[in-house]
């Protein structure tokens, strides 16, 4: 009992110090159990995209993810949505009963070829952020794991971006003020993996003796063409979207300059009129006319979409780069083997 009391006290202390300083989130520490659960859920339903909730503890600059549970596939029905909320509460209650950490720390979701930078993700993140101070989103890509890569990423939105998003100010002026560019929307947090000593003992015992594992076979697979093709397709689509966005901006700027020109001519006219009136000894008319439609400020299109698309494009590019790099090594390996 004494140890338990000490533990609660230290928790309180931790909480208290945290209130005082609130150090930035540096590392996400995930249990092997959680990784396996996420992978199982995401792969079973692939290519459908699924989500689930992460449970864990927030300890200083480390966010420990110690358990998770999947969400059922969402449907567009309010009744079912309410049921989903019930499910979540029920699951949390059940897990608490068996001493699982009962603190939501974020959510996980699967993705297709890393195309996760969407407005929905940002909205979900903001929703979570309202309730819990520190939350994280874990992204898993089942399509990449067929190549022997553990495609797991922990993401959060940057603070400056969240501020802008809350104020809904995505015009050029504000962005310049904050010095925020598309790279600064998402922050990737390094992932650490931890396992209990018991699990570690079991896995050491159960590890297969064979010197080659499944991931080795996957990595040496020569055919990456389908993956690359899909990647290129997505990239091209994104480029199209980006150019549409760019056109929107061009349209806006063209309209803006036209409006400015109109304003200038109107002003000149008004001034010369005023000169004439002055010469005639009359009161000058005001130099502004808020009722005139040409003085109505044009709404500037939000830059959020183009930022997100840019993020995606750069993501596809880096995927292509890394896969191409691997293919190079494989090809040279093949060549060397054949020559021998």
């Amino acid at each position: 009992m004494a140890t338990a009391a000490a533990a609660t006290r230290s928790f309180l202390q931790v909480a208290a110090t945290e209130e005082a300083v609130a150090p930035p989130l540096r590392v996400v520490q995930i249990e092997g159990l959680v990784i396996l659960k996420i992978i199982k859920h995401c792969t079973e339903f692939s290519p459908a995209l699924v989500t689930g909730q992460l449970l864990g503890l927030d300890v200083g600059s480390v966010l420990e993810v110690t358990n998770c549970f999947p969400f059922p596939i969402r449907e567009e029905d309010e009744e079912i949505e309410a049921e989903g909320a019930n499910y979540q509460l029920e699951m949390m209650r059940c897990l608490r009963e068996v001493n699982v950490d009962n603190n939501t720390v974020g959510w996980y979701q699967s993705t297709l070829l890393g195309s996760y930078q969407t407005v929905e993700l940002i909205e979900t993140f903001m929703n979570y952020q309202e309730n819990i101070r520190r939350c994280v989103c874990i992204i898993y890509d089942p399509s990449k794991s067929n190549q022997g890569v553990l495609a797991l990423k922990a993401l959060k939105l940057s603070d400056s971006f969240m501020e802008l998003y809350r104020a809904n100010e995505f015009n050029g002026e504000k962005l310049r003020e904050k010095n925020l560019s598309w790279v600064d929307i998402f922050e990737e947090i390094p992932i650490k993996v931890s396992n209990s000593a018991l699990v570690s003992a079991f896995m050491t015992e159960l590890e297969a003796d064979s010197p080659v594992t499944q991931s080795d076979y996957d990595r040496l697979q020569l055919s990456t063409n389908p993956f690359m093709e899909r990647n290129m397709e997505f990239l091209i689509e994104c480029m199209d979207d980006l150019s549409t966005e760019q056109q929107k901006f061009q349209f806006y700027y063209r309209n803006l300059s036209r409006q400015q020109a109109q304003q200038q001519t109107w002003l000149q006219k008004r001034r010369s009129e005023n000169m004439a009136r002055k010469a005639a000894g009359e009161e000058p008319l005001p130099e502004e006319d808020p009722l005139n439609p040409i003085f109505k400020p044009l709404p500037e299109p939000s830059r959020l979409d183009s930022f997100l698309i840019t993020n995606q494009v750069s993501n596809y590019c880096s995927q292509i780069n890394s896969v191409a790099g691997q293919s190079f090594s494989r090809l040279y390996l093949m060549k060397a083997l054949h020559e021998n």
Binding site: G32, I35, L150, V193, M203, T204, E207, Q214, S215
Partner: peptide
């Protein structure tokens, strides 16, 4: 094996 024993062990 897909995840890698190095991580789980």
């Amino acid at each position: 094996e897909r995840v890698g024993f190095d991580i789980l062990k």
